[in-house]
Design a protein around this nucleic acid. Structure first.
Lengths: 192, 192, 192, 192
DNA sequence: CATGAATGAGGATTCATTCAT
DNA sequence: AATGAATGAATCCTCATTCAT
């Protein structure tokens, strides 16, 4: 009965899925989760409303999928050179994070917004907590090595700068001297 | 003529207005503007839905009023000691800002969120632009004095730290070592 | 306790009542009964919303009062010269009616509208029926005298012209050649 | 691709659209535009409230659609026999109009009501003006031919009778001797 | 007599979701 | 796999009416 092979179907499915996720990410990031309608997502993805429910159980499930997808793409941030010094590894991480932010603005926008208003989509809360904890677990050892005795405050200070740069860049866009600020940041770490 | 004096009415109005603004700020900040219903605001303020429209023309007008109100309370941040050195004034501003953030978490949460998703409430965009510009106009002279030749990058780096601390504090709440990070920040400025 | 005499109070009451009725008539006539709010009536009358309920039990009661009031002013239409011929009396009535319409446009507008949509304010239905029947009872004898054997059709034809002129005038306003059409109408009756 | 063919969908849409328009016309005509709720329209049409917005952008758009629809059905009124005399054409038009009124009471009721209270739905005003002007442009030439020198007053007198008959019929319904009055009207024109 | 703050029911509109095809 | 008609709950907002003063 089926004129398409299973492989073809899988590919079609994958393409549709990605179109939906891309459209939803864009809209959720700029217009907000609740202000974006499924109809808008469907229109932007060039498909029908109904089809979205063929791939995602609900609007929240779609949001969840956006983050799961982004996680995959960000894995190399976490890949550290085991032979480098702690400070070098920190710099590497800072640069990788900055570049990820630079190349994934929409994702960052959505991520930071939801981090700040976790009650908007309550079901995401555990996910955020897990990610936050994982990040801390990964970074704290470095800080303990570089800043013995005051690792935690330095960790948070470092995090503040990272987040703040991302925030500023997202707000100002091209007007933000991203590269300059990033270099200043690297220098700052270097001098510690 | 009037059974209640004008003063009485003004007081009643002021009280109701404040109750509504407080409730709305709390809810908008945590749940998001679009995810918060007027019914929720009314319930939290302990009044009827209809009364809100006696004080504010629309939900958006209420949001606007929240920011106008907060502006009043934040005016002393902008008050600088004219006899202090630029660096001292910068530190003063940093401390005042940090304290304002600490004491007005909900407002900050709402503010930062909307800054990051200006399309959520498009009518606020001009307001944000104005505030952003005013801030830069006030601070840049100090940076030009302290960091001649690289004022802008230092301005944005400074801003990133401020925003980042606020962001971190808002996300983690009491778990965030706010005082420690703030002191670290002051020290950082001191050493420039 | 009361610094005002009863007569003064009555006069104030009468004045307020009339202001309200005039404002309501204007608004109901042009904007429609349901599209007009009590707040608008109060604003136009220059009084408070609450006061309206001091004079009228409800919005519908206010509407009722408008018609009762207008009835008083239209009584002379019904006053016919008992010594005139039937045709002369008919012409007198036609002229009086036309003049009443001309001078009470708003009332006519409201009246005709509600006649055509009696379900808009169901409570008025009996009133309209009564008025319509009274009118017919008054006029039919004349038509039976002037047009024996075909009184009814002539009555309705006559009524159609009357109503039609009023309608046209209300729709076009000053652009309507009211006087010319009225004269044509009188001539028409004359020639029967 | 599509599980329903385009033709099927078009038919479904056309049916729903007509059900909604019919229900709305009935209710708007008898209960008034503002006194009729979308819920009532939906109930009468046997569909859900939401579906109405699948076919019409707003309540006002639905009203507009009613008139646009009725225009189509009334086009033959405007079709005149070019070989007939002016008077014959006028009689033809009078009869066609009377029949249209007789068969489209609800539409007439709505039309006349809104003509008399144009502020109730302000957006319809231009439409009414256009229709009124078109009617005059069509009829005036005939009147100038039949009543040279006094075409305008005769035009308005004729119009008054037409409107008045419609009005009377709408108010009284079956009690109105429509056929008799119509014949009287035709005779009247005949004798000019 | 007069005011206007307050209420709550009701109305227009939106939108996530379902389902027949 | 895909569509889009259909639903109904939820939302913003309006407004007649009440009542304390």
């Amino acid at each position: 009965m089926s004129p398409r092979t299973k492989a073809q179907i899988d590919e079609i499915r994958e393409q549709s899925r990605e179109k939906i996720i891309a459209a939803a990410l864009d809209l959720f990031a700029h217009n907000g989760f609740h202000s974006t309608s499924i109809a808008q997502v469907a229109a932007k993805a060039g498909i029908s409303k109904g089809l979205i429910y063929n791939y995602f159980e609900s609007k929240e499930d779609l949001l969840q999928a956006i983050f799961t997808e982004a996680m995959k793409n960000s894995e190399d941030i976490l890949t550290l050179d085991p032979y480098a010094t702690a400070k070098q590894r920190l710099i590497g991480m800072a640069e990788a994070s900055a570049d990820f932010m630079y190349n994934n603005q929409e994702y960052m926008r959505l991520f930071l917004t939801l981090m700040m208003q976790p009650d908007v989509v309550k079901s995401m809360k555990p996910w955020f907590d897990t990610v936050g904890k994982a990040k801390k677990d990964m970074l704290m050892p470095m800080f303990e090595e570089i800043f013995p005795g005051r690792a935690e405050v330095e960790y948070f200070f470092f995090g503040a700068i990272m987040d703040g740069i991302g925030f500023g860049y997202l707000v100002l866009g091209r007007e933000y001297p991203f590269e300059d600020v990033k270099r200043k940041f690297i220098d700052y770490i270097q001098n510690q």
